[in-house]
């Protein structure tokens, strides 16, 4: 599904070059459940952004689904994000003025799906995540856990093959975090590939594969699921 070869990413901060990623080699197969852990500033988010085609590496090659996705133009890149990738963020990133339904609907709207089909798919997705009675609520009328589940519904509404989660429980209490993790694991059980950045060793311990990062490098990789 994913193959990264010798990925490097540097940021210019003032006169200094900051290495966010160095010599990253990583292969992820379809259906894997993978966590990335490591200290703050070790490059986890940067790696996730490159995987999600929101950022480009300065060096190296990124293959997504057997296709070179390193140097795509804006539109095909957006097309891939829309259909293949779902993002889950620490801070949910729901649009505050829109209802839960409208937030979940957004990727379908951008993709030009007809309104009738949109409504149907969104209602089904919300019901599946136990949010049917919250459909008309705005984010500020929802609890943290509910917000994250709305965000998960939005990330999965296009049925993407790859889910990228950046500390999805980082802003939640334990109980809500548990719920969210169970939701994500259910997605994995349905066949979606999950790459999840987390600080929490307990959460990291639950995934079948663990990658540890340090100072922009992969310090440890427990190996692909099926290699164990």
């Amino acid at each position: 599904m994913i193959r990264l070869e010798n990925i490097e990413r540097t940021f210019q901060v003032g006169d200094e070059q900051v290495y966010a990623l160095r010599q990253i080699n990583l292969t992820v197969r379809v259906g894997e459940y993978l966590s990335i852990m490591g200290p703050s500033g070790s490059g986890k988010s940067t790696l996730l952004n490159i995987l999600g085609l929101l950022d480009r590496p300065d060096k190296g090659v990124y293959h997504l689904d057997g296709r070179d996705a390193t140097h795509l133009d804006d539109r095909p890149q957006a097309e891939l994000r829309r259909h293949k990738i779902g993002f889950i963020f620490q801070f949910f990133h729901l649009i505050p003025r829109l209802t839960a339904t409208e937030n979940v609907e957004l990727p379908l709207t951008l993709a030009g799906v007809a309104p009738a089909e949109r409504k149907q798919r969104v209602m089904a997705a919300l019901a599946e995540l136990g949010l049917a009675d919250r459909a008309r609520h705005r984010p500020d009328q929802l609890s943290g856990g509910q917000r994250q589940r709305v965000a998960i519904a939005r990330a999965t509404i296009m049925r993407p093959a790859l889910i990228l989660a950046d500390e999805p429980t980082g802003n939640l209490d334990r109980a809500s975090g548990q719920e969210v993790i169970q939701t994500i694991e259910a997605l994995n059980a349905q066949g979606m590939t999950i790459v999840m950045v987390t600080h929490d060793p307990e959460l990291g311990g639950r995934t079948r594969r663990q990658v540890r990062m340090n100072d922009g490098r992969i310090a440890h990789d427990s190996g692909a699921d099926d290699e164990k």
Partner: peptide, 9 residues
Amino acid sequence: LLRAVGADR
């Protein structure tokens, strides 16, 4: 966010 959920420029 719009960009992340698939909007192009």
